[in-house]
Amino acid sequence: MQIDFGLDRAPRETRIVVAMSGGVDSSVVAALAARSGAEVIGVTLQLYDHGEAVKRSGSCCAGQDIYDARTVADRLGFGHYVLDYESRFRTGVIDRFADEYARGRTPVPCSLCNQGVKFTDLVAFAKELGADCLATGHYVRRVVNGGRVELHKGKDPARDQSYFLYGTTQEQLDFLRFPLGDLPKKEVRRIAEAEGLAVASKPDSQDICFVPDGDYAGLVQRLRPETIAPGEIVDMQGNVLGTHRGVVHFTIGQRRGIEIGGQKEPLYVVGIDPDARRLVVGPRRALAVEAMRVEQLNWIGEDQAEVAVKVRSLAPPVPARLAGEQVQFERPEYGVAPGQAAVFYDGTRLLGGGWIAETVSAEQGQMNAAAA
């Protein structure tokens, strides 16, 4: 299979840097780049200290993954660099993740990583190497339309990763390439097998890469021990219903762990006050959100009023109206919480996005309308 990397010069005159995580996706990108006839250089990020990295599995950019990436580069016959970005990753991603959790918000560390070390720093390094482009294993499509580069959802909806790339800049997009955007995962593994790559059957990474066991609370309480202090659980009128064992164990919309009986209907976390160590709980209908404010907006496409917006990576886009930082949902939406990314689309095209700063509940909106 041949992939056109969309470069102006003949393949033998070009240099492609491939971001190699050690998984099957980026390894296949490296194989496709090598097959194109271009000079290929692989780059892998080491994001943990060596002792921790060796112990990790089911993640990316860890000890075994670095070894796997180097093995692929050796088999395909090109040079391979390992960049120690541990301190940058800890400051820009892990610490911010812990801080957001400690504030009672729901962070999206994969978006932070892509906006920082994976794109900003890697693009700069690739350019220092004299590369014509940086290729990655993300399942998104780069489309040139009338001379302008656009970013679209991956063709396979089950693999699409555009939600995490809303922070990409137009300058970065001009330099980036995503060869897997039109391929299903099954075809990617078939290519890996045909190339004789040892990672062909390697499992996909799971959960957040620096929390491969899924214990987010355990990580946050180690970094921010104040989050394990017990506190009150109150209803939406402020009545004390019980106690909790630390706000670190809860996020907006969570039902598990509240453990308060005798209620007419199940209770969910509808608010978190970390300074007062207080959880606010209420019925599911209290989680319905009619509007939100989105800050730190980044636009790849045009800033338009009628959009489709995703508030979680696995949620379908829903219709909304955008006016500056204010987003009004066409219908009340569930699963919306401060700290998440709100990502805007026009069909399959990614327009941009930002961080959810505040939400307006549908109940509060109705109360405001009645008062007016």
Rank of each mutant, 00 (worst) to 15 (best):
307 V>C: 08
180 L>T: 09
202 K>T: 05
56 R>I: 06
225 P>L: 01
345 Y>S: 13
163 Y>E: 13
51 G>P: 00
343 V>S: 14
66 I>Q: 09
177 R>W: 02
271 G>R: 13
232 E>M: 01
253 G>F: 08
331 R>S: 11
311 V>Y: 10
109 P>K: 10
8 D>H: 06
2 Q>I: 08
38 A>T: 05
187 E>N: 14
53 A>V: 01
281 V>G: 10
312 R>S: 08
287 L>H: 02
78 F>W: 01
40 V>L: 11
236 M>L: 13
68 D>A: 10
159 R>W: 03
67 Y>K: 14
21 S>H: 05
366 Q>N: 01
336 V>E: 13
43 V>Y: 02
45 L>Q: 06
262 G>N: 02
120 T>G: 05
172 Q>C: 02
80 H>P: 15
190 R>I: 02
81 Y>F: 15
22 G>D: 00
372 A>N: 15
83 L>M: 13
17 V>Q: 04
136 T>Y: 09
5 F>G: 07
2 Q>F: 07
110 C>R: 10
347 G>N: 12
329 F>E: 12
298 N>K: 09
64 Q>H: 13
146 G>H: 08
209 C>G: 01
24 V>G: 03
209 C>R: 07
183 L>E: 14
369 A>V: 06
311 V>T: 15
100 E>N: 12
230 P>D: 08
323 A>P: 02
355 W>Y: 03
364 Q>Y: 03
217 A>Y: 11
163 Y>R: 11
86 E>I: 00
152 H>R: 13
72 V>G: 12
232 E>Y: 00
173 L>T: 12
195 E>V: 03
257 G>S: 03
194 A>R: 05
357 A>T: 02
34 A>C: 10
290 E>N: 12
46 Q>A: 02
306 E>M: 03
299 W>P: 15
163 Y>S: 06
230 P>T: 03
27 S>M: 07
237 Q>K: 06
32 L>N: 03
54 V>S: 10
80 H>E: 15
155 K>G: 11
55 K>C: 00
27 S>E: 03
43 V>K: 00
89 F>W: 09
262 G>E: 08
200 A>S: 14
299 W>H: 14
91 T>H: 12
328 Q>T: 15
122 L>T: 15
103 R>I: 09
182 D>L: 02
135 A>N: 13
167 G>T: 12
326 Q>V: 08
99 D>K: 03
197 L>P: 15
111 S>L: 12
276 A>F: 01
46 Q>V: 02
178 F>S: 08
52 E>K: 11
345 Y>D: 14
